[in-house]
């Protein structure tokens, strides 16, 4: 039984990790390409979740809700980029932190204004709200498996997009030399808007996917945002591959840490103390992981240059 539980926890970690990847992908692209620290990325996660809850309510279809989360967050991204973010690229990190912190306040209060202070619920359709049997007598939630599948699919899509398509080549070129690429006739402004909107849309989608497991409420994006920052710092800023590895590492460390550390400490302490110490350390584990990575590799696992 222990073994099945361990695998189940591992899958939970994987699911958490792929969701974090959806959040981190946009964040790391926006930072890598435009050099922008975007604290408001968590707001798109929230906007996506609210968009999904709204459209799922209207149409009665969960899948239309998921698709609209992507679209709504993308539109919010385009508008934000044009109105505010565009003015921040040339400013220093401190200004970016402040301005996007202000955007969080604006988005959170705006949503509370529109939807009220109570959490909304986004219900998983019955056919997904079930368990499946996997080999080795493991029983696991269908919906969580779907999240893992979507995450891996999008990771693959982003890999193709950044390494095989013209858009990806332009993004990479913009990352290296933004003046040169605009001299070559690429409209850098539009390129930036596209990258930002894509990141926002992915954040929105992950917000909707998770909103269905938890609840859809104001302020849901910020805890995830901080985790996404941990992910891209561990993975190395600007690297999609780094974001993917970092996200899985963080997801699995956090989930397995909460499960295994209390067990580990039971070898040294009595039960109550072990649970206490284990769960306290587990709640810090990913930050410890990040600190260790930065101490040994100051620009992350796959970071090419220091920012």
């Amino acid at each position: 039984m222990e073994f099945q539980l361990l695998i189940e926890q591992f899958l939970n970690g994987l699911q958490f990790g792929t969701m974090l990847f959806l959040m981190s992908a946009g964040l790391t692209l926006v930072f890598g390409v435009m050099g922008l620290i975007n604290l408001a990325h968590g707001s798109f996660y929230m906007i996506g979740a609210f968009g999904a809850a709204l459209f799922a309510e209207i149409t009665g279809s969960f899948f239309i809700g998921l698709i609209s989360s992507f679209i709504v967050a993308m539109f919010a991204g385009v508008i934000t980029e044009i109105l505010v973010i565009r003015k921040l690229y040339k400013k220093d990190h401190l200004d970016q932190v402040l301005a996007t912190f202000a955007l969080i306040l604006i988005f959170s209060e705006g949503i509370r204004w529109l939807f009220g202070a109570y959490p909304l619920y986004l219900n998983i359709p019955a056919e997904l709200n079930a368990s499946v049997s996997l080999p080795l007598e493991i029983i696991y939630s269908k919906y969580r498996l779907l999240i893992i599948a979507i995450g891996i699919l999008i990771a693959f899509f982003l890999y193709i997009l950044t390494s095989k398509t013209l858009l990806g080549i332009r993004i990479k070129a913009g990352q290296n030399d933004r003046e040169m690429i605009s001299v070559l006739g690429v409209n850098i402004k539009t390129l930036y808007t596209i990258v930002f909107a894509l990141g926002a849309a992915l954040a929105g989608l992950s917000g909707a996917l998770i909103g269905a497991i938890q609840s859809v409420e104001v302020g849901m994006g910020e805890p995830v945002l901080i985790l996404a920052f941990v992910v891209i710092i561990i993975g190395g800023i600007g690297s999609i591959k780094g974001a993917f590895v970092g996200a899985l590492l963080v997801g699995v460390t956090d989930t397995l840490g909460r499960f295994l550390l209390p067990e580990l400490f039971k070898l040294f302490f009595d039960n109550a103390d072990a649970n206490l110490i284990g769960s306290s350390i587990a709640s810090m584990s990913i930050y410890i992981l990040m600190a260790i990575v930065l101490i040994f590799k100051p620009s992350g696992l796959f970071g090419e240059r220091s920012a």
Binding site: I233, G300, S306, A307
Partner: peptide, 9 residues
């Protein structure tokens, strides 16, 4: 670390 890595650590 420096820059954004310092902010984050």
């Amino acid at each position: 670390t420096t820059g954004v890595y310092f902010i984050m650590i």
